[in-house]
Design a protein around this nucleic acid. Structure first.
Lengths: 359, 359
DNA sequence: TCTGGCACTCGGATCAGGAGAGTGCTAAAA
DNA sequence: TTTTAGCACTCTCCTGATCCGAGTGCCAGA
């Protein structure tokens, strides 16, 4: 410990009160100005009545423990990832949303709540990006638990049948089945009735094995119609498995172009390509899905090189008390956390509410 | 006509042989180099055995009639939109695709041909962007003629009903309707049966007016169930109209970031926003849908300010002898037309072939 | 333990000068 | 009459020099 000042870091490695205060004002100023903060300005703004020289000493200490750094000798200081981390974890004073904002959000989300759940998620993503002027993301939950609600078969031509499968009482999937022979409308109706009676309310993943079972038995003792029905169910379920695309909805990517952090076209391109490929982003979102409350990845913390100058603020949302998905905001590391965090938090709560009308 | 040389522009306003040749080499060089072309280089590369001084004279003429311009006094010449136009219309020597390229294209397109037609269009768009390293677009044909095939109502909870409407025997749309009271499963079945009996095979656009008619009559003499059915049909069709999304598929936008023409972040952002809003692009594509063969919009010719430094090369594709859609490529005005044109042309032909398996 | 003072460092803006590329014009050559 | 060579001129781009301001680090004194 080459420093003379004991006050900055105490024996347990904790920052002194005033060092924290200084770091806080530094980060706050840097977030609004975007330029390195000098000792004079800090001494004025911190509200601590310390001379610039003292501030400089403390800054030197903060630099030593990796909370700030200076871009070059005669520039002010800039927070490091660690500095942001401490700021976000301990120093931040959250600015709660105005009740007006909340009402607006609520209004827009509830407007969509009745309809298609995918549309609701898309709207939510739009809202996030609109409110924060950054990029909004909402993960589309992959349903492990899909309940069979209803199936319907419509004869097309040439042995082709359009199968419409409704799951979870609202998600509609349709497949074209190629069958071994023509079926009449009545035959199809019977098959559908049979399947609906047997399967309604069941979990699709459990149905698979049952269908396999019945297919074997069918060879022996079931009549032709039932065995056809089972085969159709098999075809429907199999293809519905394929399209279980893990996915996420992104909005307002173009907002990110405004930030100088991304004025480098190459970085921007890499970022957009990453968005398009989806893999990395999905992986990152997955990590947050089962976390407790608002999660924040600052800069390199995310572990993805393209996100080095960016931060990701997420919060999970729930369907029937299960954290099935996550929503959030992607923006420059230098973002207004005190505003973004409550926005993300509240949006997650409202989305949860919209998705769980019963409660 | 202050020029002494008569040779450059003849009496009918046509360019002399060698002026054309020079313009051609100028455009060709500019396309590969991206920098203003000087008289010395032109004199060497044109194959005309003219001294730089002569070339300079001709250049002055070409500048006067608006074919080329110089960015500043002591730079070489650069083609104007008019120059590109003449080049593309009259001077271009198309470089046909190698048969290997054609086979590859064919292979990839036919691979998708059996399945979902939207997936096929998406693949096509990918191929275009991959081959040209620019952005690929494919318009999704809007169906003017949507035939009502079948409707199905499923009761959810709280007066909400899931309506599944099948059109054209394969396109499924689903809507959640909010009704004035709860309906039993049987009631809904009756309503669906009634509507299907009345409407199956009819054109949806014609149905609208009919529904309005019947709604008026219903007030007086129809029973409650029929009038409910009509109201439901109205709700279904109204919402299906909304989602009759005219659309297009875009691929490889990020390729555009590589070009210096778009190194300006603001322009880039405007462009991407335009892509997202879809309106302008759709309008542009619409214009090309019914054109004969390959269409090219160079720079400002498109009429959209965001596309000022870009060119659009398109070709329509057909379904049952109707030009229903258009595909193309968007890239910098300074693009390798002699390569892009055959690619777009061939892709349109292959897509047409893939969409019309009967022939 | 804090503060004032001072030398020092660095980045950014501004300016001048020179090199290079290419032109336009004129006068001579073909 | 058309082409060419020559030459002065213009403009961009690069480089180096200089200056200014901001902010630091450190030391000595309060």
């Amino acid at each position: 410990m080459p420093r003379k000042q004991q006050a900055t870091v105490n024996a347990e490695g904790q920052l002194s009160e005033r060092a924290q205060q200084l770091l806080k004002t530094l980060v706050e100023r840097y977030i609004v100005e975007g330029e390195p903060v000098g000792s004079r300005q800090l001494s004025r703004d911190s509200g601590l009545d310390l001379s610039p020289a003292t501030v400089r000493n403390i800054m030197a200490d903060l630099e030593e423990i990796g909370m700030v750094r200076s871009p070059h000798t005669s520039a002010g200081r800039v927070p490091t990832v660690q500095g942001y981390r401490l700021f976000v974890d301990a120093l931040l004073t959250v600015r709660p949303l105005t009740s007006r904002d909340v009402r607006q959000l609520q209004h827009k989300i509830l407007e969509e709540a009745g309809g298609d759940s995918k549309a609701l998620l898309a709207t939510t993503s739009d809202l996030l990006s609109g409110l924060t002027r950054m990029a909004g993301v909402v993960s589309v939950p992959r349903r492990e638990t899909s309940q069979w609600s209803h199936v319907e078969f419509l004869p097309l031509s040439d042995r082709r049948v359009l199968a419409i499968l409704v799951m979870n009482e609202r998600e509609v999937q349709n497949r074209i089945l190629h069958l071994d022979r023509d079926y009449s409308r009545d035959e199809l109706q019977i098959a559908a009735n049979y399947l609906n009676a047997e399967f309604a309310g069941r979990d699709v993943s459990q149905l698979r094995s049952r269908i396999l079972n019945e297919m074997q038995q069918a060879r022996q003792n079931m009549n032709d119609m039932m065995s056809s029905a089972i085969r159709m169910a098999d075809a429907v379920i199999r293809s519905s498995g394929e399209s279980a695309d893990p996915d996420y909805l992104l909005a307002g990517e173009t907002n990110l172009m405004e930030f100088e952090e991304l004025s480098d076209i190459d970085k921007l391109r890499q970022l957009f390509d990453t968005f398009k490929q989806k893999r990395d982003i999905l992986h990152l979102l997955d990590r947050c899905t089962h976390a407790e409350g608002v999660q924040i990845y600052i800069g390199e913390e995310s572990g993805y090189q393209v996100l080095d100058d960016l931060s990701v603020v997420t919060a999970p949302y729930e369907v029937s008390d299960d954290q099935v998905g996550v929503l959030g905001v992607i923006g420059p590391t230098r973002m207004a956390y005190e505003r973004v965090i409550p926005i993300v938090d509240m949006t997650a709560k409202l989305l949860t509410a919209a998705l769980n009308p019963r409660k």
